[in-house]
Amino acid sequence: MKMATSYQRKISILLFATVLFFFGALPAKAQTAAQPTDQITWHGYAQFWTNTDFDNSYTLSLRRLKFWIGSGPAFSEHWSFKVQALFTSLGSEKFFLQDVYGEYRNLSGNSSIRFGQFVPKYSLQRFQHDYQDIPLERAAAINITIPDGTLGVRDIGAQYTLRADHKRLEMNVGFFNGYGIKEYRANYTGYMFTHNLSYTLQSAKWQWKLGYSVMYRKAEDLSLKYLLPDSVLFSGNDFRCDIYALLKGNSFSIQAEYLNTWLNGNRAYGYYALTSIKINKKNEVYLSYDKYNDLISTTENNPWYIAGYNFRFKGDNNLVLTLDTRFRKENGSLKNLTSVQFQIFFH
């Protein structure tokens, strides 16, 4: 077993070195804002963190080492692509291929079709990048009840996007395999449809956004971790929906989502509310309430109360130090989980 683990680590390191060599050999610029002459761009960042419950749990790990390569403005008028890979301590530093997709869009940019392996458009917080203005962890209901939350987050399929009313209105319709990307099945008879609709109002000082998402899956022997007991393989009708709202200003934001899941009529649900205040370009505080109720009889489903602080060394997301602490009741007593994370971008 130890020999296998050592061999896997060597393969992971070799793959990592290959990816770095590949990125370095590309005629591209790694930068926050792509230049009009760039055909290909690449980016990456690392997050190191430690957390403790001040009792018997202490962790120090590489939370994420993520790289992605994509088409730049000069690549094509109609076509674009993205390839993204991830390394984590949780995944034993193995190379994990996340996004691999192409996209075709019309000249006005009002409509496009994406195909390949990617995250189906569903939820507000899931599409707020994990290196930006969100707590260290997305809400439990987001992580678990989005279409492929515990199935690898991504799925394989196609998605059509239409933007109207000066791009304030956005509609997405997708068709996918429906079993995620953690396993490959040669004979899978299920399928999944997704739909998302949002409307955004923008002014010089404020942004308002309202939206909803729905999903239907014909499931076949799916292991839905943290939603159903580990011993259960779910087959049948899986219907989910989500509504959300966002109000964001130059120094203040508040958002909330409410998610429902029906598995053959049995309901799980969750919701959160999150607010953040930017004191200045470098300092930000946030508060959140996170509630999730699963279909596992042995869990308590008590909500988390969360407070956090972000310090941006240069006023952007290149170098960020985050302190996050959260509380909830477990087995009649108060549990605290406190985390510290350092983030660095590679440009």
Results as ranks from 00 to 15, higher is better:
81 F>H: 07
284 E>N: 05
171 M>C: 15
31 Q>D: 11
109 G>F: 01
226 Y>N: 15
91 G>V: 00
175 F>N: 10
331 N>L: 05
296 I>N: 05
199 Y>D: 14
163 R>P: 05
13 I>S: 15
127 F>D: 14
170 E>C: 08
46 A>Y: 01
294 D>T: 04
307 A>R: 00
118 F>M: 10
71 S>Q: 06
130 D>M: 01
103 E>S: 12
146 I>P: 00
316 D>R: 00
306 I>E: 07
84 Q>R: 02
283 N>T: 03
6 S>L: 12
258 Y>L: 11
89 S>C: 03
102 G>W: 06
90 L>K: 10
114 R>K: 14
179 Y>V: 01
266 N>Q: 08
52 T>W: 02
243 I>N: 09
145 T>V: 08
183 E>A: 08
140 A>M: 08
220 E>F: 06
12 S>V: 06
344 I>T: 07
179 Y>H: 10
47 Q>S: 08
124 L>V: 02
40 I>G: 09
16 F>G: 15
333 S>K: 01
318 N>Y: 01
124 L>Y: 11
347 H>A: 06
68 W>A: 13
31 Q>W: 02
258 Y>E: 11
92 S>T: 03
313 F>S: 09
10 K>D: 09
75 F>I: 07
116 G>Y: 08
312 R>Q: 04
104 Y>K: 03
84 Q>T: 01
321 L>F: 07
126 R>L: 07
228 L>P: 01
75 F>D: 07
216 Y>T: 11
80 S>D: 13
290 D>A: 02
343 Q>P: 04
261 T>S: 12
229 P>F: 01
119 V>N: 12
24 G>E: 08
300 E>R: 01
212 Y>A: 15
64 R>Q: 10
88 T>H: 06
240 R>M: 11
241 C>M: 10
257 E>V: 07
184 Y>E: 14
296 I>K: 06
227 L>E: 13
194 T>Q: 14
334 L>R: 03
164 A>P: 12
203 S>C: 06
179 Y>L: 05
305 Y>M: 02
311 F>H: 08
138 R>S: 12
172 N>V: 03
201 L>N: 15
80 S>Q: 08
219 A>V: 12
17 A>I: 04
189 T>R: 13
75 F>A: 12
264 N>H: 00
304 W>R: 01
226 Y>D: 15
91 G>A: 00
228 L>V: 05
202 Q>Y: 14
263 L>M: 04
218 K>N: 15
340 V>Y: 01
214 V>F: 12
235 S>M: 06
132 Q>H: 10
309 Y>S: 09
156 I>L: 13
19 V>Q: 11
148 D>R: 05
130 D>E: 06
294 D>E: 02
92 S>F: 00
286 Y>R: 04
9 R>W: 14
293 N>V: 01
3 M>L: 09
33 A>K: 14
121 K>S: 14
49 W>M: 11
186 A>P: 00
